[in-house]
């Protein structure tokens, strides 16, 4: 039972438009899986289908042996949490209120927060390193602070897996590293599976155990960062000339752009 997700011949998309066209892969518990690929490849659609927002038109997403759509919504939310890239904020809740919403699948009507809820939230706040900012309204936060609040909210759900859509896209390098360090720690030490769409190929290479390269609704290549980040494949998929070297510190592949060069 070490398999977390089992995706089988998944076809999904929007009414009148198929975006994902037959994807299969499985994922171990505690794995840090990165999904990369150009814009429009179907990365976000895959995440939405794995988090039950979109219903697949065929194929299945299974957790353990159960199809995720046969699991009650609340029970599913207790095992899978989602961090969206940067949700638009209409009502400026405080950081703590947002994190508390992560307890929704555990709360009952009328009941106020139990000791268990407060403990779970405190652990989440500590892990996501946002103790100093929980009393502030989220519209008064920097992108990095808000991202940590959203990660804390996901952690308050006490999930077995966290799905993230471009968790680092609005962050500077120090906050990118901070957020990804938190996620890496969760996958290594707490055995929480991490599935993240990442645009920065170098960050993906540094942090992910395994990469899925998507293009046009299918998986083009999957494996360790060194397997997937092969210059011929990347050039073909991204239609851009790249040079791939090895990071002298980590030994992971490193993608350099070669501007001006035509393929």
């Amino acid at each position: 039972m070490m398999t977390q997700f089992e995706i089988n011949m998944l076809v999904s998309g929007y009414p009148g438009k198929t975006v994902i066209n037959g994807i299969s892969f499985s994922m171990r518990k505690g794995e840090f899986l990165g999904i990369i690929g150009p814009n429009g490849a179907g990365k976000s659609t895959l995440l939405k289908t794995m988090s039950r927002v979109l219903r697949p038109s065929s194929g299945s997403v299974k957790m353990g042996l159960r199809d995720i759509f046969s699991i009650p919504v609340k029970e599913f939310a207790r095992s899978v949490a989602f961090v969206s890239s940067d949700p638009s904020i209409v009502f400026p809740f405080t950081g703590l209120e947002v994190i508390m919403m992560g307890r929704f699948p555990y709360l009952r009507m009328f009941a106020s927060e139990s000791r268990q809820d407060i403990e779970a939230v405190s652990r989440a706040v500590e892990t996501a390193d946002c103790a100093g900012i929980i009393s502030r309204p989220i519209d008064n936060m920097s992108a990095g602070e808000r991202q940590r609040i959203l990660i804390a909210k996901a952690l308050a759900q006490e999930p077995e897996a966290i799905i993230l859509d471009e968790p680092t896209s609005h962050l500077d390098i120090s906050h990118q590293v901070q957020v990804l360090d938190i996620l890496k720690d969760l996958s290594v030490n707490k055995r929480i599976s991490i599935i993240a769409v990442l645009h920065d190929l170098n960050l993906a290479a540094e942090y992910c155990d395994r990469l899925l390269l998507m293009d046009d609704g299918v998986i083009v290549s999957s494996g360790t960062p060194s397997d997937v980040l092969d210059y011929a494949t990347i050039e073909k998929v991204y239609k851009t000339v790249v040079v791939i070297r090895e990071n002298p510190v980590s030994g992971k592949p490193f993608v350099l752009l070669a501007p001006g060069l035509k393929r």
Partner: peptide, 23 residues
């Protein structure tokens, strides 16, 4: 009032509400 937790989840967005476990 009894369903205020659901309403809180909705006010972050419909997809966020799904992720939080709202039907």
């Amino acid at each position: 009032g009894a369903l205020s937790n659901d309403l809180n989840a909705f006010s972050l967005g419909e997809e966020e509400a799904v992720h939080a476990g709202v039907e």
